[in-house]
Design a binder for these strands. Sequence first.
DNA 1: TCCGGGCTTGAGATCGCGTCTCATTTGACC
DNA 2: GGTCAAATGAGACGCGATCTCAAGCCCGGA
Lengths: 163, 163
Amino acid sequence: MKQIAERFEKFLRTKGLRFTRQRSAILRAIYATHRHVSADQLYALLHKDGKATELNISRATVYRTLALLAEGGFVQALDLGRDSGALYEHTLGHEHHDHMICLECGRILEFSDSRLEAVQEEAVRKHGFLARSHRLNVFGTCDRCARSADEAGSAGGAATESG
Amino acid sequence: MKQIAERFEKFLRTKGLRFTRQRSAILRAIYATHRHVSADQLYALLHKDGKATELNISRATVYRTLALLAEGGFVQALDLGRDSGALYEHTLGHEHHDHMICLECGRILEFSDSRLEAVQEEAVRKHGFLARSHRLNVFGTCDRCARSADEAGSAGGAATESG
DNA sequence: TCCGGGCTTGAGATCGCGTCTCATTTGACC
DNA sequence: GGTCAAATGAGACGCGATCTCAAGCCCGGA
């Protein structure tokens, strides 16, 4: 965590920006959770802990800092359609991955497959396109919901893990 | 086109809904263009042609109809992050495809690759996930922009085709 | 230590997409 | 023609996200 803060600080300094207490708090907050959080959830988080009392970070600052973090590659936005706000996840220490979104329970699962990357890259290059990044979301039913559907509605099913 | 209208009509009737002039006009409008249009662009389109004068379709109706069209699989929404509204494209007569979005000129190109689908499906299934649909957007530089960058800024580059 | 410029911040206004409300109109069936 | 539910239009509304701007804070220079 400390190294990440240092990297963020360096990133900011390079751009002639400052590593303020607010930015530090927001960075720590998003690296403290392993779920996908929206800007507002993050805002709420920052106000639940003691951090709020002394800092009272505003919504605008949360959004501004998230934009900076995204620019520096410290977090990544994740769009699931426009019914809900954008979700963010921290990236450092996590390989690139794609997302499976369960339409039943809303869980967001991560997965990755190197072949997928390779095929993608090649398919795109055939069109003379130079890929810089991509976003793959698969929508469907997660294992847990599929199972509980088989059992004709027994336990679980409405979890909200990681999302 | 006529068959598509009939299919949409049948789709509506099945749901106990009506195939009105407004819905017909919106269907025709989105099938008349081969670009990806936003709800508001569609609204503007409907007001530029003669259709507007006699029908004067409201924004609400455009959104409502697009939702119906999407539900019936006649159009498909395409999310490119939340900086812009959702874009729609008609689907009948078009195979499934993914999108390459040029970050320089904004062009949206379509591509598809059966291997990609296969690998995707398999990768997801490994996790016990049952895929229902997916959305793959690749961001980068299109052939045209890459070329004009090589030529150190000669012609073109700012096209807005199909998006 | 004091000073000044400029980056940051907070609070609220504002924007923009999309949805909702509701009175009115329209379509379909009798 | 009559009836009733679906559909529409105009505008209000909700909400995520951004913008505005005065006040605050950081940091380097004197």
